[in-house]
Design a binder for these strands. Structure first.
Lengths: 213, 213, 213, 213
DNA sequence: TATGAATGAGCTTTCATTCAT
DNA sequence: GATGAATGAAAGCTCATTCAT
């Protein structure tokens, strides 16, 4: 679990030489460590010093790079949402419409199952954003990203005649995203008691029925 | 919004006389104030002193009653869930089956709309419970409460032939609760941009379709 | 160990009737409880509420009787020294001179062995008096009491020709008292590892030799 | 009396350069300040902030270094006993037997006379150790140190025929240490009223007589 | 008289942030 | 650039003390 500077290098690659490369890598390690710590303890209960030490650097480095703790947290939020957004885009370009929509939903749930720590960190950030205006900006981005994609797919599916036309598209997009988020949170709260695959299958079945033209 | 000791008394009533009454009332006021503060600022960013002062008492009283901040937070969680559980029970005894299920879902969303502060506090507690084992116990209670009721209604609806029988009932119950929670959270994050009534109608329409026999 | 209000009454006696008697008994119980607590935890680490509860009364009674904590501690010091002084006097009136001196020394050590809790409380008070001017007054009393008695006996022994006449009597009295106090403290710090009887016998043997005419 | 960071440097020396030196010096200054404060006010009545400020640093530094107050107090106890043990060793290697024993006793009393503040702090710690199990460990060390040395000297004196052979050596060692401790405490409680030199001379005379072969 | 509710000051402890090396 | 020493504000918690009943 403990991030290690070198372990992320592919075998045979050399340690990065330039200052810029070293800085970028250190920054990445710090952000990874921060994700872990946010998932484990929440935003308020980890210290900058811990982030540095867990990333394999000194206790002072996070402050040196990010200045204030808020900035580190914001960077974490941005990193998570950007990574997720990139992954999402790569997955979805090909399948618009109902199939794309179902694939998107499946992708959310599968991503959480594949990397629960990041999912947990994101859930924590979503929860905290309810009372932290500074986080809201970042969270609003990912919300827009998610709902925009869903709206696009819903509209396409309606156009194709595979999704019922009487939908309130914006509300529907919010509800789908909300359902995915809620399902992931519920699973993270009790990963032993719930089977994510069963939830996923039921979620997709529900979705198919509620959207059917 | 600011809780005041006397303002909760019906006009004309006298201040409580016995020590027990004084204590009980103080405790209630403190819990109310804590709900407000958790909704506004989250668990880590309110102080015990603020709770006391906002409730109209001294800064030391919350610590005097609850001992540790954790215990106050746990008491808040328990209070919210008990109140909600009581309200829920009162609403639902009469209508089992599909209609009861839809009424339950509507009740969740209507409750949030009627008392957004408490809904916000609960959402915050749900988020924090992901990394606070001491809160998980309290949250697990309300989860069981919610899913048990939903499972009961699903089973009854299947028996009646109004809900499709091929459902994975436990997963479905989790998904419905998750959808409600996620929807409320989404709305709380952007109450200006979203209309809770529209979300509610769309949610119920979806639910009806996805459960239809 | 827990003081009980009634248990100190001889069987068959009635509970005290008058306010004065009840008050006196309550005060005694509180002081006993305070002695125990000082022995166990020192002056700063017991609370007034504990004293009341341990004595079988309410948490507020010590404050009600003694006003401030300092006053309670002073009362404890005075009680211990008075009780000890009374016992000492009763023991020593009969034997002046060298034999009386040896009996006095034995009495100190035997008292500690018989009631280690009180001895511990007194040792604690002696230690604290080094940096608490308010306690010094009380402690000075018991010091004067002890050294005066020892000086009297030393003088008498010299007069009788049984104690060497080249003694510095005041210093000798201080040394004897200091030796007794130090020995008791040493034993209290390690009652398992040291045998008080052996220390007592050796102490008396030393004393006899160092004083011999 | 007030410790000052720079005042301990020999004139002309530069302030320490390396981080390690800065830290070590700060730690020493903090411990010195803590010794003073314990002597003046006891363990419970000084604050960590005072230690830092009196040492010429910030109020937060003691907590930063020692973590908890208990740890600072334990470090003080260890420092005092180590310093004393070192001094003692340097003094005593040369003279075993009766003369060494008398020299040891004299050294205890002379040390107290030379540095009453440290003696007072040690007396306070000894007193508090009666009800602070965490301190007992440290105090047990210095007790063993003292009695072991005394036992060694007693045994040597007996072997040489200059100390009476019917002694209970372990008890005698405890009594000597107890007498020294008690005498110092007595003097510290009333330094104006007592002359340490007179006590010292009388102590040594007594010791000589009670041990004489 | 006796109880215990309530106050608020003071402490330990944590840690973001600054700064010297 | 990187380290970690040092600062000082903030908050939880304790509890002597006051006061209503």
């Amino acid at each position: 679990m403990n991030a290690d500077r070198e372990s992320e290098l592919a075998p045979g690659t050399r340690a990065p030489r330039t200052q810029g490369e070293r800085r970028a890598q250190a920054e990445r390690s710090l952000l990874d460590a921060a994700v872990q710590l946010i998932a484990e303890r929440g935003i308020e209960r980890f210290t900058l010093a811990e982030v540095g030490l867990r990333a394999g650097y000194s206790s002072g480095l996070p402050a040196h790079y990010f200045g204030r703790k808020d900035a580190l947290v914001a960077a974490v939020a941005r990193t998570i949402t950007e990574r997720f957004g990139d992954d999402l885009e790569r997955h979805l370009v090909l399948k618009p419409g109902l199939d794309g929509l179902l694939a998107t939903a499946a992708f959310y749930l599968d991503s959480a199952a594949a990397d629960p720590q990041t999912a947990r960190a994101l859930s924590v950030l979503l929860g905290e954003s309810l009372h932290r205006p500074d986080l809201l900006a970042e969270i609003a981005r990912i919300n827009r990203l998610g709902t925009a994609e869903l709206e696009r797919q819903l509209a396409y599916g309606i156009e194709q005649g595979r999704i019922r036309a009487d939908l309130d598209v914006p509300s529907e997009a919010v509800l789908i995203l909300a359902g995915l988020r809620g399902t992931i949170a519920q699973w993270l709260a009790d990963p032993e008691g719930l089977r994510i695959e069963a939830l996923r299958d039921a979620f997709l079945a529900n979705l198919r029925r509620s959207l059917a033209a």
